[in-house]
């Protein structure tokens, strides 16, 4: 009986949600709608796409939006990830000390050799993704996640290996600091935080986009070290 009633309630809530959301404009219709609404016929998405290439000389418009027009949000998002990693470390602190020493089986030779062979390749892919963030899809977040998956492989495959947490922490701090300082230089030079103060170069060239690739490299290092830190914390705790 109780199950039926809760199911019924769930259905009512779901129907309410569906009714509410059915009226919300999305996709092509939403874009048309918003174009009609916003003053001066400006749709910001469209505006970014049409002018972004000229303004930042950054072939990947998504990157241009993420790091320039809405770069301040990205700074906040990087901070959120930083907080999550730190918070996990703070909560797990003290629990690791009591954990028993390495009791896991030694991995077989094939496994550990395979992991070691793959690791540099994964690193290469990750670094490629964030260095080319302004040219091709992907960027700091994606590249950082790929790098962290490389460290995950090492954690799983070669169990004796421990990551150097001091180095990870230093990479985390310094890359975060680099992001803020790059943004502050813009404030000092041109009076606006995150201003793209470097020469933007030619579109589609590796050295283009001004500070955008630099910031993406900082984000890549930061995200990579943070996610690796999370994995290191958790895998250290498992043992």
């Amino acid at each position: 009986m109780r199950k039926q009633i809760s199911l019924l309630l769930l259905l009512i809530v779901a129907a309410g949600f569906a009714l509410c959301l059915a009226g919300a404009p999305f996709g092509a219709e939403g874009a048309r709608e918003s174009r009609r609404l916003v003053k001066d016929n400006v749709n910001y998405g469209r505006r970014y796409v049409s002018k972004g290439l000229d303004e930042n000389r950054c072939a990947n418009i998504v990157t241009s939006v993420v790091l320039n027009y809405r770069g301040f949000d990205t700074l906040g998002e990087v901070t959120i990830l930083f907080i999550a990693a730190l918070g996990l470390g703070a909560v797990l602190y003290g629990r690791r000390a009591g954990a028993s020493p390495d009791e896991a089986q030694r991995p077989s030779l094939i496994l550990s050799t395979g992991c070691r062979l793959l690791f540099p390749l994964i690193m290469l892919v990750g670094i490629y993704i964030f260095i080319h963030g302004h040219l091709s899809p992907g960027g700091g977040f994606q590249g950082g996640a790929v790098i962290a998956s490389g460290f995950l492989l090492i954690c799983l495959g070669c169990r004796k290996k421990k990551l150097n947490s001091v180095a990870l922490g230093a990479a985390e701090s310094l890359s975060g600091l680099a992001f803020v300082l790059l943004a502050l230089i813009g404030l000092a030079v041109g009076g606006s935080f995150l201003l793209n103060f470097l020469p933007t170069g030619k579109v589609y060239a590796l050295f283009s986009g001004g500070i955008i690739p630099l910031i993406y490299i900082a984000i890549g290092v930061k995200v990579g070290s943070e996610l690796s830190g999370i994995i290191d914390n958790l895998s250290g705790e498992v043992r």
Binding site: V62, P137, A145, S149, I231, S235, V238
Partner: peptide
């Protein structure tokens, strides 16, 4: 493609690993 890459590497890759770490702890 940007979101696809993020979703594949984080959603399908790392999150799963983190969950498995947590589960392996409870199992043990």
């Amino acid at each position: 493609p940007d979101v696809a890459m993020a979703e594949a590497s984080i959603g399908a890759g790392l999150t799963t690993a983190i969950f498995i770490f947590a589960i392996s702890k409870t199992k043990r």
